[in-house]
Nucleic acid binder design. Sequence first.
DNA 1: CTGTTAGCGCCTTCAG
DNA 2: CTGAAGGCGCTAACAG
Lengths: 351, 351
Amino acid sequence: MADKSRRPLTGIREVARLAGVSQGTVSHVINHPERVAPETRQLVETVIERLGFVPNRGAADLRRGHSRMIGLILPDITNPFFAEVARGAVAAAAERGYVAVLCTSDFDATKEENSLELLEEQRVAGVLVIPAGQVPQRLARLRARDIGVVLVDRAAKSDEYCSVSVNDVAGGEIATTHLLESWPTQHIALVNGPSSIRQCSDRRRGCRKAIRAAGLPPEALTEVVMPAMTVAEGVQAGQAIIDSGRLPDAAFCTNDLLAIGVLRAFAAAGITVPGQVRVVGYDDLDRGHDLPIPLTSIRQPNYQLGHRGSELVIAEIETPDHHHERLVFDPELVKRATSTPSLAARWQSPR
Amino acid sequence: MADKSRRPLTGIREVARLAGVSQGTVSHVINHPERVAPETRQLVETVIERLGFVPNRGAADLRRGHSRMIGLILPDITNPFFAEVARGAVAAAAERGYVAVLCTSDFDATKEENSLELLEEQRVAGVLVIPAGQVPQRLARLRARDIGVVLVDRAAKSDEYCSVSVNDVAGGEIATTHLLESWPTQHIALVNGPSSIRQCSDRRRGCRKAIRAAGLPPEALTEVVMPAMTVAEGVQAGQAIIDSGRLPDAAFCTNDLLAIGVLRAFAAAGITVPGQVRVVGYDDLDRGHDLPIPLTSIRQPNYQLGHRGSELVIAEIETPDHHHERLVFDPELVKRATSTPSLAARWQSPR
DNA sequence: CTGTTAGCGCCTTCAG
DNA sequence: CTGAAGGCGCTAACAG
């Protein structure tokens, strides 16, 4: 508890000196304890303990030629979806003794590139990236440097990268099928975001597939496309549906925010859910649980995405002859009152 | 686009060779461009570009004796509160050219210690920590190593560390005062979590203060303490209030989850809000926005907490003679329908 | 302005 | 099983 002489209570060298052994031996007790005589080891460990010595990972990494950091680039850590991915990624990394360096792109391709550069400078062992838009060009350079790369929430096109993603076509299909099967349905509204977002077009594809499978004609589906996927847009979409004069039996909203907006518009117009129209969303946000009527939704294995993603990069890094893998998860339906008349009863306002 | 000869298209040395200058000069064009003749610089930059050379930050850090990484330890990145803090912290770090290493404690003191050890090994320049419980002992060691430390969401006791936190007493006071002033009120219920959580006791303190200030007797306040702060507990608390037979004029719930539960219980019992009872929560979760009746709540400057936190560590790191600062933010009332009869009208279910 | 040089802290053959 | 020695890639004096 003294003043510790001000100098970086440094290194392996000091430990060696105090223990009366060589640096090499100290290094061994740290990295290959078994190669050292029990008593020497014991001695060294005691000194390490007494000095409060903590090895300098950076120096070790430099010497070894590779680090134990993995970079994580995502658009917005505040988004529950990405946060969950991050949680899985950080957990898996920690399990394997890696630390995660977090970068945020704010959906900005430039920031994304900058982050990639920073991570390259740090010589991270690998990166997990949830691209904000296009798959960043710069990833190629990282790969050239033998930095592991895995795309998250986006299937790799070619076999250039590993990727973990979830099957949005299946999600759209599941949602629609549920609507179709749980109650007689002739007319479905699809409330969607811009087709330029892959998720949106994939989910639409699944939706159409289900309709076809049910033997319904394409006209059974009416699509409302909104420029953004917020509650406000949802309200507008809901209003548009109402104004169209032809109320659908059910509405599949491509995300929960849109669904919440639609629900709001319906409530304001006195349209009952699920009585007149059944609704399902996508993402299974917590926000959807406490609505006047809890929202049926599609849940994605977000934590798994991140977790398996980390495992994949690490495998890619540690395995000499690595084959790129493309993992695709399936989403899952979570039934709630908004699509299920029987569940809805208890939610109707009392009295 | 060739095969790049397999070797780590390495270093400054190679650049120097190809440019026909010395390593030192290359280093200068990277770190002190102004100290180099424009043409030499131009030449070197061209070579750097052509080689796709990216400096090895780890090596530089080793040489310089300090890194540009800041560690971030928080209980759960999935919690909107912490996520927002992280966003601010990461942004501020990036602004100053630092990268953030993210660690998660899962509210587990052991994991917290482990993370601190990892960060110490990485020789991060500083750490931002949101303690899971007690302030970790190990922080002292980091400080001894000249690693910057700032406590987030917790005021430092002594003047050992910098800290950024928010005034929970003020929050409790604001919430209660709002309830008291916006409508005639004789009886308030305080739905609280365990007193062992500092936030809970602080908010209670603020609540009492407001009641005293309004000239009401202590009996005007009835406290319901729940062992956890979830929606489920909130429902129970709401039920308890109902069962007590004496409905309060207003309820201050110490977080939004509790409030949501209380609201649910009230709705199920046919008690109108804000008609019979007005309610305010705490945290201003998104979840509260889409309730049958939007929830009045207290919002904390989470992003600011993280942002200023990062700025503080960086200041502590970069400023030789640094005085520990204790920043305290004030929370803010967000009025919504749940406490405001006039706002509530438009939310009443139509028809 | 540019070149030379000596390490930062650690790991890892290679001998003894 | 242990010690000695040579860098990893880069920066920061110091000379020229």
